[in-house]
Each structure stands twice: as C-alpha cells, then as structure tokens.
C-alpha cells in the first residue's frame, strides 16, 4: 500500500511539473511572438529615449509627441483615407463578384469548375513583381496611372481568386435540398439563393472579407508602381518613403506604423476564428 501511494504521488508530481513546463513554454512563445509588436508600441511612445543605450525594456515615462508630430508633419490622414478606400473597395468587389462566381461554380458544375482550381493555384505561383510589369504598361497606355480606382482593380488579381475558392468551399458544404425546400415554399431559384443560401455562408463571407481587406491594406508593389503622386499614395507607400530621408525619426516612423496597424489588427482580433476556419477548411478536408 505504502509504495503505491508513493508511486501515485510521484506520478502526480510529474504531471504538475509537466503542466508548469508547458505553461512556461506557452508564455515564452507568446512573449517571442508579441515582443516586436510591443517594441514598436514602446518605441513610438518614448520620444526622447529612442536613441538611448542601453534601451529600456519598460518605459518609465510615455508621451504621445511622436504621434502628434507625425500627423502634423506628413499627409498621414490622407494616406490613411486612401488605404481605407482601396481596402474597402477591394473587399466589397471581391465579395460581391466572388459570391456570384462561387455560387455558379458550386451549383452548376462544368469544366469551368476544375479550371478555376487551376487558376487559384497559378495565382499562388505568380510573382507579384512579374504581374506588376504588364500592369504598369497597360495602366500607362490607358492613362490610369495615379488612379486609386485602378489600384483597386489591380488588387483584385490576388484577392478575387482566393475569395471565389473559399466561398465555393462554403457553398459546397450547404446541401441543395435547403434551396429546393425554399423553392417549394414559393421562392424563385435566384430568390432561394439570396434568401437562404447566402445567409448560411456568412462565416465564409466574413473570412473572405478579412482576407481581402488585409491583402489590400498591406499591398505594396502595385501601389508603389501604379501611383506616383504623393497625395494619392496609400499608407504602405507613405511608410516606406520615410526610409529615404537623412534624419530618421524612429519614434515618429513607428507612431505612423502603429496607426497603420490598428485596423487590420482589430479586424483580426475580433474575427480570427472565422478567418482560420475559412482558410483551413479546404486543407483539412482535402
């Protein structure tokens, strides 16, 4: 008896130790993942001490001077609005066009369906820097350089195929019978799609929206190449332009970067569950 309880105690102690080690590893991983983000925030809030050596890990005093200066000194607001417009328009168009296409591909299976799978794969292989060359030539010939609307269209090249694919996966998982039942109740085929099927794919629509928004918000090469005028720049191009200057104001630069990171981060924190299920669905099933 005595030895058995000793063994049980040893077992319990081992499990406790195991839990503690696991907890420490998880915390360590979290710290490593978040540290760069923390460092950006910290450096943007400590204006004077940016060039301090050794750097202080936890700031004793914080100030919002860098935020004030960068908003006053650069067309940050303008870039922010431009980025917002481009990202929202890209998202709206991807979802709108993508929904219809996904519905069509999922409900009327033709040779096109297989072809679309290939198209999705090819867009994954296509270097953005290659695509931007013909885009530049086409846009110049059409006189569309410097147009934010043109940039939206260009962004669809990468946002739309994935939107179609993810949404098609969601439509595939909804049985046709649901639409048929609705049609028996007197709605037309199209009416059944819009009233019954599309609301059921809401998680997919959310996933695709976040994805398209994040792609368009962070897109750099099209924006860099197709837009020249500083007032039409989006935030990514504006941020990268700080680099060329002689005196680097790191605090201001990182303050601008923080402002720019807030929208995708909020979306992401609030809706990551949908994003993850949208993007892993196909991989795990297949």
């Amino acid at each position: 008896m005595q030895s058995q309880t000793a063994a049980a105690r040893a077992f319990r102690r081992r499990r406790q130790l195991d839990t503690i080690v696991h907890a420490l590893l998880v915390i360590g991983a979290c710290v490593l993942a978040v540290f760069p983000f923390y460092w950006m925030l910290k450096s943007s809030l400590t204006t004077e001490s940016a060039f301090q050596w050794p750097p202080e890990m936890i700031p004793l005093t914080i100030s919002f001077d860098a935020y004030r200066d960068v908003v006053a000194g650069y067309p940050i607001v303008r870039w922010f609005l431009n980025s917002t417009f481009v990202a929202l328009a890209t998202t709206a168009l991807s979802v709108l066009i993508g929904l219809n296409a996904a519905l069509g591909l999922s409900r009327y299976r033709t040779r096109l369906t297989g072809l679309f799978g290939v198209v999705i794969l090819i867009t994954q292989m296509l270097p953005a820097t290659l695509l931007v060359i013909p885009m530049f030539i086409i846009f110049r010939n059409l006189g569309m350089i410097d147009s934010l609307g043109g940039l939206v269209v260009a962004n669809l090249a990468f946002a739309l195929p994935l939107a179609i694919w993810v949404l098609k996966g969601f439509f595939d998982s909804i049985p046709r019978e649901i639409e048929e039942a609705s049609m028996i109740d007197g709605s037309s085929e199209v009416g059944a799609f819009y009233r019954v099927t599309i609301p059921l794919t809401l998680p997919g629509i959310i996933a695709v929206s976040i994805y398209a928004f994040m792609v368009a918000w962070g897109e750099f090469f099209f924006a860099r190449t197709l837009i020249n005028q500083e007032t039409n720049w989006v935030f990514t191009v504006g941020l990268s332009s700080f680099r060329g200057e002689h005196t680097l104001h790191w605090s201001e630069l990182l303050a601008a970067a923080t402002i720019f990171t807030i929208p995708p981060l909020l979306f992401f924190a609030g809706l990551q569950r949908h994003l993850i299920s949208g993007l892993t669905g196909g991989a795990v099933k297949g």
Binding site: P36, M40, Q52, L254, P264
Partner: peptide
Amino acid sequence: RTLIIIPWAIPNVVTVLIWNWMLDANY
C-alpha cells in the same frame, strides 16, 4: 493562440519597419 499568431495580422511594410529598428546596428 491569438497572441502567437499576431505577426500574421501585421502588414509586411510594418513588420519590416519594426525589424529594421530592432536590428539597427547602433541602437
């Protein structure tokens, strides 16, 4: 999980800025 996948949500341009600063030779 949210904390560990946070780098995913940060736009590449910002990622580069952060790391350029963290990898700065002097500071």
